[in-house]
Design a protein around this nucleic acid. Sequence first.
DNA 1: CACATGACTGACT
DNA 2: AAGTCAGCCATGT
Length: 118
Amino acid sequence: MTPVALSDKHKDFFERVYDVVRLIPKGRVTTYGAVARCLGAAGSARMVGWAMSASHSQKFPVPAHRVVNRNGMLTGKMHFENPGAMQELLEREGVAVKDDKVQDFKDLFWDPQSNISW
DNA sequence: CACATGACTGACT
DNA sequence: AAGTCAGCCATGT
Protein backbone atom coordinates (compact mmCIF):
# COMPACT_ATOMS: atom_id res chain seq x y z
CA MET A 1 0.00 0.00 0.00
CA THR A 2 1.12 3.53 -0.54
CA PRO A 3 1.95 5.86 2.30
CA VAL A 4 -0.44 8.70 2.38
CA ALA A 5 0.70 12.27 2.38
CA LEU A 6 -2.60 13.58 3.61
CA SER A 7 -1.14 15.02 6.77
CA ASP A 8 -2.23 18.37 5.44
CA LYS A 9 -5.33 19.34 7.31
CA HIS A 10 -5.50 22.47 5.29
CA LYS A 11 -7.32 20.55 2.60
CA ASP A 12 -11.02 21.09 2.30
CA PHE A 13 -13.50 18.45 3.29
CA PHE A 14 -14.19 17.69 -0.34
CA GLU A 15 -10.56 17.22 -1.22
CA ARG A 16 -10.06 14.93 1.75
CA VAL A 17 -12.98 12.81 0.65
CA TYR A 18 -11.67 12.59 -2.90
CA ASP A 19 -8.20 11.69 -1.68
CA VAL A 20 -9.48 8.89 0.53
CA VAL A 21 -11.72 7.54 -2.22
CA ARG A 22 -8.85 7.56 -4.67
CA LEU A 23 -6.82 5.57 -2.13
CA ILE A 24 -9.30 2.71 -2.18
CA PRO A 25 -7.42 -0.30 -3.58
CA LYS A 26 -8.68 -1.77 -6.82
CA GLY A 27 -11.24 -4.45 -6.30
CA ARG A 28 -12.17 -3.07 -2.89
CA VAL A 29 -15.06 -0.96 -1.67
CA THR A 30 -15.89 1.20 1.33
CA THR A 31 -18.83 3.05 2.78
CA TYR A 32 -19.77 6.70 3.10
CA GLY A 33 -19.85 6.41 6.87
CA ALA A 34 -16.36 4.88 7.01
CA VAL A 35 -14.94 7.70 4.93
CA ALA A 36 -16.79 10.32 6.95
CA ARG A 37 -15.55 8.83 10.20
CA CYS A 38 -12.02 8.68 8.81
CA LEU A 39 -12.22 12.39 8.12
CA GLY A 40 -13.51 13.12 11.57
CA ALA A 41 -16.96 13.93 10.23
CA ALA A 42 -18.62 10.92 11.80
CA GLY A 43 -22.37 11.09 11.48
CA SER A 44 -22.11 13.13 8.33
CA ALA A 45 -22.12 10.30 5.83
CA ARG A 46 -24.55 12.40 3.78
CA MET A 47 -21.87 15.01 3.33
CA VAL A 48 -19.62 12.38 1.81
CA GLY A 49 -22.33 11.41 -0.65
CA TRP A 50 -22.88 15.08 -1.29
CA ALA A 51 -19.18 15.46 -2.04
CA MET A 52 -19.43 12.51 -4.40
CA SER A 53 -22.07 14.36 -6.38
CA ALA A 54 -19.50 17.05 -7.02
CA SER A 55 -16.76 14.51 -7.74
CA HIS A 56 -17.66 14.71 -11.41
CA SER A 57 -16.37 18.25 -11.44
CA GLN A 58 -12.97 17.18 -10.20
CA LYS A 59 -10.01 17.38 -12.50
CA PHE A 60 -8.82 13.89 -11.56
CA PRO A 61 -11.14 10.90 -11.80
CA VAL A 62 -12.68 9.73 -8.55
CA PRO A 63 -13.52 6.02 -8.22
CA ALA A 64 -16.91 6.81 -6.76
CA HIS A 65 -18.05 3.37 -7.85
CA ARG A 66 -15.97 1.97 -4.99
CA VAL A 67 -18.09 3.85 -2.50
CA VAL A 68 -21.38 2.27 -1.53
CA ASN A 69 -23.73 2.55 1.40
CA ARG A 70 -23.31 0.44 4.51
CA ASN A 71 -25.63 -2.14 2.99
CA GLY A 72 -23.24 -2.69 0.08
CA MET A 73 -25.89 -1.43 -2.32
CA LEU A 74 -25.00 0.75 -5.29
CA THR A 75 -27.27 3.57 -4.20
CA GLY A 76 -25.38 6.09 -6.29
CA LYS A 77 -25.44 4.19 -9.59
CA MET A 78 -28.20 6.43 -10.85
CA HIS A 79 -26.01 9.46 -10.37
CA PHE A 80 -23.47 8.25 -12.88
CA GLU A 81 -23.62 9.50 -16.40
CA ASN A 82 -25.02 6.19 -17.43
CA PRO A 83 -26.90 3.86 -15.04
CA GLY A 84 -25.18 0.51 -14.90
CA ALA A 85 -21.74 2.02 -15.39
CA MET A 86 -21.05 1.74 -11.68
CA GLN A 87 -21.77 -1.98 -11.60
CA GLU A 88 -19.82 -2.52 -14.77
CA LEU A 89 -16.78 -0.74 -13.36
CA LEU A 90 -16.92 -2.78 -10.16
CA GLU A 91 -17.25 -6.09 -11.97
CA ARG A 92 -14.39 -5.07 -14.20
CA GLU A 93 -12.27 -4.74 -11.06
CA GLY A 94 -13.27 -8.16 -9.85
CA VAL A 95 -16.10 -7.08 -7.57
CA ALA A 96 -19.16 -9.26 -8.00
CA VAL A 97 -22.34 -7.21 -8.10
CA LYS A 98 -25.85 -8.57 -8.19
CA ASP A 99 -29.16 -6.76 -7.96
CA ASP A 100 -27.29 -3.49 -7.34
CA LYS A 101 -25.60 -5.06 -4.34
CA VAL A 102 -21.93 -5.93 -3.77
CA GLN A 103 -21.46 -9.64 -3.11
CA ASP A 104 -19.15 -10.60 -0.24
CA PHE A 105 -19.25 -6.95 0.76
CA LYS A 106 -17.87 -7.79 4.17
CA ASP A 107 -14.81 -9.33 2.52
CA LEU A 108 -14.29 -6.53 0.02
CA PHE A 109 -14.84 -3.77 2.53
CA TRP A 110 -11.83 -1.50 2.87
CA ASP A 111 -11.61 0.53 6.04
CA PRO A 112 -9.70 3.81 5.45
CA GLN A 113 -9.34 4.34 9.17
CA SER A 114 -7.36 1.10 9.42
CA ASN A 115 -5.24 1.70 6.34
CA ILE A 116 -4.46 5.38 6.51
CA SER A 117 -1.99 6.82 8.99
CA TRP A 118 -2.51 10.51 9.43
C1' DC B 1 -36.42 32.09 8.34
C1' DA B 2 -39.15 27.50 7.61
C1' DC B 3 -39.75 23.33 5.04
C1' DA B 4 -38.41 19.67 1.90
C1' DT B 5 -34.79 16.72 -0.20
C1' DG B 6 -30.76 13.73 -0.43
C1' DA B 7 -24.91 8.97 -3.44
C1' DC B 8 -26.44 7.76 4.84
C1' DT B 9 -26.64 5.33 9.43
C1' DG B 10 -28.16 3.46 13.67
C1' DA B 11 -31.80 2.37 16.75
C1' DC B 12 -36.26 0.71 17.43
C1' DT B 13 -40.56 -2.04 16.43
C1' DA C 1 -35.45 -10.49 9.41
C1' DA C 2 -37.74 -6.55 7.35
C1' DG C 3 -39.88 -2.09 7.78
C1' DT C 4 -40.10 2.43 10.14
C1' DC C 5 -38.34 6.55 12.59
C1' DA C 6 -35.26 9.88 13.84
C1' DG C 7 -30.66 12.26 13.60
C1' DC C 8 -27.43 14.04 10.71
C1' DC C 9 -25.69 18.60 7.67
C1' DA C 10 -25.64 21.32 3.31
C1' DT C 11 -28.59 23.05 -0.52
C1' DG C 12 -32.62 24.67 -2.85
C1' DT C 13 -37.27 26.69 -2.89
